[in-house]
Amino acid sequence: MQPDKQNASLRITALVSVGKHPGSGRARRAEQDARAVEMAMTLAPEGLEVLHAGDPQADSLRAYAGMGLKRLRVLQQGTNADAVPALSQYLKQQKPDIILTGVRAESGESSGMTPYLLGEALGLPVVTRIAEIVSIDHGEANLLQALPRGQRRALRVPLPFVASVDMAAAAPRQSAFGPASRADLESQDIGMAVMDEVKAAWSEAPARKRPKRLKVVKAKTAADRFKAATAKSSGDGGKVLRDKPASEMAQAVFDLLLEEGVLR
């Protein structure tokens, strides 16, 4: 807890979804969404609203409440409904200063599109993968955006905005059973149900691990390994092909795939 960061008048809405454990496939508190709630609880314990669009009976929503929330608002809709229209309609009325989401859901389409679609619908700027909201003053927020290998980019964004929270953000507090079972899940009928046609068209199957190239450790000393682990990724292996005949460019791609052993 960093009380100095708290802002009494700030209103934050954290969007939460039903997560899915990668090992057991069981519904759970989604890791990124929980980080969004944690960030909002630290920043604005008073002006915080945690919002979910879907089934108010979902048990895993209680896991968010167990972090110490008194209530959690659920825009009630069926499992096949699209969450974005419901959320954007509700958020248009509420006009929170900051809307926090995870980067992508752990179940469903998991496209990571929610923050962008919301940003588009509400006409707000979208900041992706933030690790921290450092401060808020004069209607502007100072953010740290998470980049690969522990790097951060400082950003300044005017309120209101939509931000997706990266796994690099502070880990969420423990969910306690008592508050979780007592929290108020305020279910709200929004009187609209937009079928998620994209989702309906998809078929879901368990993801398979992508093949990964074996890493040959060239470093001989600990210092080398440290350097390799912390250095910026330099994309020196790439080649830009531009303004060339399509067949030549296709040949280059084909050669690369052969070289990598993707094609045989």
């Binding site: 454990h21 167990g66 972090m67 423990q174 969910s175 306690a176 508050p179």
Partner: peptide, 23 residues
């Protein structure tokens, strides 16, 4: 401390979360 405060120290929270999600 655990059921009301959610304050199990160190790896406690992680272990409990795993037990809930994966038995």
């Amino acid at each position: 401390l655990t059921l009301e405060k959610g304050n199990t120290p160190n790896k406690g929270a992680e272990v409990l979360e795993n037990l809930i999600a994966t038995d």
